[in-house]
């Protein structure tokens, strides 16, 4: 992909990121942070890709470790966010 296309995606994603959270109330700061935290767990995708094309045992070992860590980040992140938000249910006026 061309550098220009990537730059465009990057800049637009920055503005979307700014915009979507601009009106969050302080009550939801923690769950939002936790949810965003889970989203960057998609580095798992990157970890799987590098595991696929690792050639030496060192590379493979590092990639496998990365997969374990990224899975913890992603899955644990979504589960813990859901548990936080579970507490809010049934309390809306």
């Amino acid at each position: 992909m061309s550098a220009m296309a990537i730059l465009s995606i990057f800049v637009l994603a920055i503005f979307v990121g700014f915009e979507v959270v601009s009106k969050v109330s302080s009550t939801l700061h923690t769950p939002l942070m936790s949810g965003a935290n889970a989203i960057h767990g998609v580095i798992l995708v990157g970890a799987i890709i590098v595991a696929d094309h690792s050639e030496t045992n060192l590379e493979l070992g590092l990639a496998i470790t990365a997969i374990i860590l990224a899975t913890i980040n992603m899955v644990g992140g979504f589960v813990v966010t859901d548990r936080m938000l579970e507490m809010f249910k049934g309390n809306k006026k």
């Binding site: 992909m1 990121g17 700014f18 959270v21 942070m33 965003a36 935290n37 580095i43 990157g46």
Partner: peptide, 24 residues
């Protein structure tokens, strides 16, 4: 990482978290 691994998804997801995290 998304740039290096040629993955648009990682670029979008990472940038979203970076930007919203900064605001937060």
């Amino acid at each position: 990482s998304g740039y290096v691994l040629d993955s648009v998804l990682l670029i979008i997801a990472g940038t979203l978290v970076g930007a919203s995290g900064t605001i937060l």
